[in-house]
């Protein structure tokens, strides 16, 4: 009888700490978002999002962070488009053209997972050597190339997971009606999985807009608006990183405002991808 109560007590004890650890994780997220908004929202004004920094390099007290917002959107948008152009055909190729070679497909998936694990600073350092090799200076273009390499495995794997769920019967039905491989890929598989693919694109966009270590060497930083692909370009993560280290309150406030905007963007991306993921689940053929 005593043993029974001990066993019961142990279970209750562990259930309590398990529940607590879940709650710690949830509380940490709310603490992070709260602390960023608490610091950032008061500095957020129309001027902040509609003007570039005024005055000296890093040290101007006036102005806002429009250059970083625009730069980040250019960078993340450009690299997402570029990796979509490479990644979507690749993901479809894995699931249609070579789907019967199970070992090969699994080996490629394994490889992509390894690539996903490489830290972004390594991509940054590599992008930097590549840049010197190609004779590029720190520029938006160099940043887009580096970030594309960084998000490509993420995008392909995310799309692959989605396309993988299509039953083989659909492939066979499409072939039996006389469609070619590429018709099957783009008219059937792509259409069927559009919501899931949008989720994958959003995930990659989120990665691209938030990463600092890969753009640190390659995109550089400037107080000016980005005007061409060959110019250095400010990005939100680096706007946070650099301006926070300046011991002037007004400049630091710009960093906190940038942080609030970045979190806001990430939250919107997260909500959108939830909506699309739900849509995808509804469309799924069982």
């Amino acid at each position: 009888m005593k043993r029974q109560t001990l066993i019961k007590a142990e279970e209750v004890f562990f259930r309590v700490i398990m529940f607590l650890s879940s709650m710690i994780i949830a509380a940490t997220l709310f603490l992070i978002i709260f602390s960023i908004f608490y610091k950032g929202l008061p500095s957020l004004s129309w001027d902040m999002v509609s003007q570039t920094p005024k005055g000296g390099f890093y040290f101007g007290k006036e102005g806002g962070i429009l250059n970083a917002i625009v730069g980040s959107i250019y960078l993340a948008g450009g690299s997402t488009l570029l990796s979509l152009a490479i990644g979507l055909p690749l993901a479809l190729f894995l699931n249609i053209n070579i789907v019967s070679k199970k070992r090969l497909v699994n080996a490629i998936r394994f490889f992509l997972d390894l690539l996903w694990g490489i830290p972004s600073i390594v991509y940054g350092a590599f992008g930097f050597t590549l840049m010197i090799y190609l004779g590029l200076k720190t520029s938006l273009l160099a940043g887009i190339i580096t970030v594309t390499l960084f998000i490509l495995p993420i995008m392909v794997r995310a799309m692959d997971e989605v396309i993988k769920t299509i039953p083989i019967g659909l492939l066979e039905a499409s072939y039996s009606l006389g469609s070619t491989k590429s018709e099957t890929a783009y008219r059937i598989f792509f259409r069927q999985t559009i919501p899931g693919i949008v989720t994958a694109i959003l995930l990659s966009f989120g990665r691209a807009i938030g990463d600092a270590a890969s753009v640190l060497f390659t995109t550089g930083y400037t107080d000016h608006m980005p005007t061409s692909l060959t110019q250095p370009t400010a990005t939100l993560p680096l706007a946070i990183f650099f301006q926070l280290s300046v011991p002037i309150r007004e400049v630091q406030n710009r960093a906190y405002a940038s942080a609030a905007i970045l979190v806001f963007i990430i939250l919107i991306i997260s909500i959108l991808s939830r909506i699309f993921a739900r849509k995808f689940q509804k469309n799924q053929i069982k």
Binding site: S22, L29, I32, L262, V263
Partner: peptide
């Protein structure tokens, strides 16, 4: 918890850094 984990995974590292300093 599902959205919490998703959002935590999506927050950029620089934001974690700001949170750390704050």
């Amino acid at each position: 918890m599902h959205p919490v984990i998703d959002i935590l995974a999506g927050i950029p590292s620089v934001i974690y850094g700001v949170w750390g300093t704050l």
